[in-house]
């Protein structure tokens, strides 16, 4: 198509040059108002097409990076940010990252509960599953498989974080576990 258009353009230019030198042939070219308007419309359509094509074409250039800066190591926990982003999805695709995150908090919480309540890790895990380990309903629901979140708490969570209830529940659970580690749950 492009070749045909280019050939058509080339023919038009040649005809134009020929007519400019042999002006007696100018009469052969239709110069009615409708014909001129038709060419103007075609040019207008082409300008819009070209402008749209421009918008679709990204600028290309070599990436030079940032050699002036030293290697920056990530902080522990940076890897969780990506997992948390996937876990926020309410679809089934979020199931696996949600499980990963719950397992990671649970392993810390089990050790903390076992320390705080002076029980075995198996007993601590049971407490986690039944939600007995904390008074915080959100943390109990986040880590407990048998625990349901009361509607009032769910509404409160929604009001606190309308766009990221999962993240809010995650942060709250981590804070509760941290408190348990620091004060044995009593502080």
């Amino acid at each position: 198509m492009r070749r045909r258009l280019a050939a058509l353009g080339a023919v038009a230019v040649l005809v134009g040059l020929f007519v400019s030198f042999q002006q007696e042939f100018a009469g052969l070219i239709p110069a009615s108002w409708v014909f001129v308007l038709l060419i103007a419309v075609a040019a207008g359509v082409q300008s819009v097409t070209t402008a749209l094509a421009r918008r679709r074409t990204p600028l290309r250039g070599a990436e030079t990076g940032d050699p002036e800066r030293r290697y920056e190591a990530p902080a522990p926990g940076d890897d969780l940010r990506e997992t948390l982003r996937f876990a926020r999805r309410s679809s089934r695709r979020g199931d696996r990252p949600r499980k990963q995150i719950r397992e990671r908090i649970a392993s810390v919480a089990v050790a903390a509960v076992a320390d705080a309540e002076d029980c075995s890790e198996a007993a601590a895990r049971e407490k986690l599953e039944s939600g007995e380990w904390t008074d915080d309903p959100v943390a109990a629901w986040f880590l407990g498989e048998e625990v349901r979140l009361p509607p009032a708490e769910r509404a409160r969570l929604l009001a606190t974080a309308p766009f990221s209830q999962y993240e809010a529940a995650f942060a709250r659970t981590v804070a509760v576990v941290d408190d348990l580690v620091a004060h044995g749950g009593g502080g």
Binding site: P76, R104, V108
Partner: peptide, 13 residues
């Protein structure tokens, strides 16, 4: 942040 705090808790454990 909560993610960094969890990593700290994991290390402490």
């Amino acid at each position: 942040t909560a993610t960094h705090r969890l990593a700290r808790l994991e290390r402490d454990t």
